[in-house]
Write a protein that binds this DNA or RNA. Sequence first.
DNA 1: CGGAACATTGACGATAATCAAAGCGAGTGG
DNA 2: CCACTCGCTTTGATTATCGTCAATGTTCCG
Lengths: 249, 249
Amino acid sequence: MFNLFLQRLRHATDLTCVELEVFEELCRQARDIGAKKYLAREGDEIASFPVVLSGWAARYQILRNGARQITRLLLPGDAFYFDASPNGTAIEEVVTLSPCRVVTIPYSDMERTINRFPLIGEAMLQYGRMENAVQSSWIVNIGRRDALERMAHLLCETHYRLQIIDGVKDGQFHFPLTQDDLADVLGLTPVHINRKLQQLRQENLITLRSKQLTIEDLRGLQQIAGFDSAYLAPQTRPAPAYERRPVAA
Amino acid sequence: MFNLFLQRLRHATDLTCVELEVFEELCRQARDIGAKKYLAREGDEIASFPVVLSGWAARYQILRNGARQITRLLLPGDAFYFDASPNGTAIEEVVTLSPCRVVTIPYSDMERTINRFPLIGEAMLQYGRMENAVQSSWIVNIGRRDALERMAHLLCETHYRLQIIDGVKDGQFHFPLTQDDLADVLGLTPVHINRKLQQLRQENLITLRSKQLTIEDLRGLQQIAGFDSAYLAPQTRPAPAYERRPVAA
DNA sequence: CGGAACATTGACGATAATCAAAGCGAGTGG
DNA sequence: CCACTCGCTTTGATTATCGTCAATGTTCCG
């Protein structure tokens, strides 16, 4: 199986086949995990570097009143806690939204690989920046777009991110989120999600049946969402020396 | 003047006086900037490392319809584009919300300092993680809290972040945001902000006059907000080797 | 076949947005 | 020193988006 985390990284920087193969090696023992499995509980120590190789997961927080807000979608190739410190404490939990294959890479292996292939380290920084950009765009999305625009924007973003890892065929892809999940991503209620989905369908923008999503009119969706993929695109210029930190062995 | 960026970093990791002094050196030529100055325009190249030494600024995005969403508040000691690549392109603009003192540190100086004092590099990683945690919490805040809770949470967060840099005296601090600014932080309208502020005042939780904010009842505010400062606290454990990347000279 | 999870529908209610006008306050210029 | 202005805040009336509640369908899966 091709390593999707690397493919994400590869989107950011040119990695050679050698580097890809080495990294592949790290992912020997991926394990399968079912849907709705809770993979980290609040307060757990982050002792390694888990990556989703296939399937979808989500990071979320729960409020006192039981409300849930999903703060990131983890698509195939995404790291659980890229933004967190190893040895740190998880303040956000992760749940799988579909059956997943997950690798847990020991930090020591990570280190070694980055040492041998600095480009991988650089690609990881790039990947981290993309994650940040997505976080910002979610704030804008939830803060300033109405329900329909929000949905449309999320679909455009997801479509784009899946394309990077060849997860889209003819504008069609696997979309395992329930309407409850969608509600918790977009800060709305399931009922409202339902109605807005119907609206998107009626306007022939999307088809969504049995977790299979087809973007019928990408332009139209992007138009509604005001979607501009610039924030998801990698920075083309090479990072300066001080960011290319080789890892101490 | 004491370097507030370093004080932020210092909150994360123990830095010695020597390190502080060296960094101080970098900030010789800070410059004063008035309120409502736009410090980066969309598409500008990020050619150096600007830091707010005093005053407040904000990173934001503008939508087609003219709506603005602020995605981060830059308090004294915060870096403009910590999450972005040097040589990258700014997709978010920055505006000062009060008169500011800003230093623009050349990346070369940055590099040199981090090389000499790896702890500073480590502290910067820690700082970056805190920024990410704040971003996540904003998503939760805007997505799942009602107007009053949102306001309360923002005030708690800001209060906490200012405390770190000794910016609070007796629960009182300078709060330069207009109600329009607040609206663009919290994803609401100015009119609604006004009404909710009055509510907080009536319940004797805060006093806000001529940009001076007093937290009259911190417990009460935290209670309303469901505020837990854990996400803002530094990770106590040392970072593992692979994150302590010394910078190549 | 039966049950559970998920999707859909309708009626109603609440929070927040919109529109528009009036008040306030600090700084400016005559 | 006072009137004037401009930006900001406050207020009221009305509207709309979205939430809530509850019931009914549908799909999936053992």
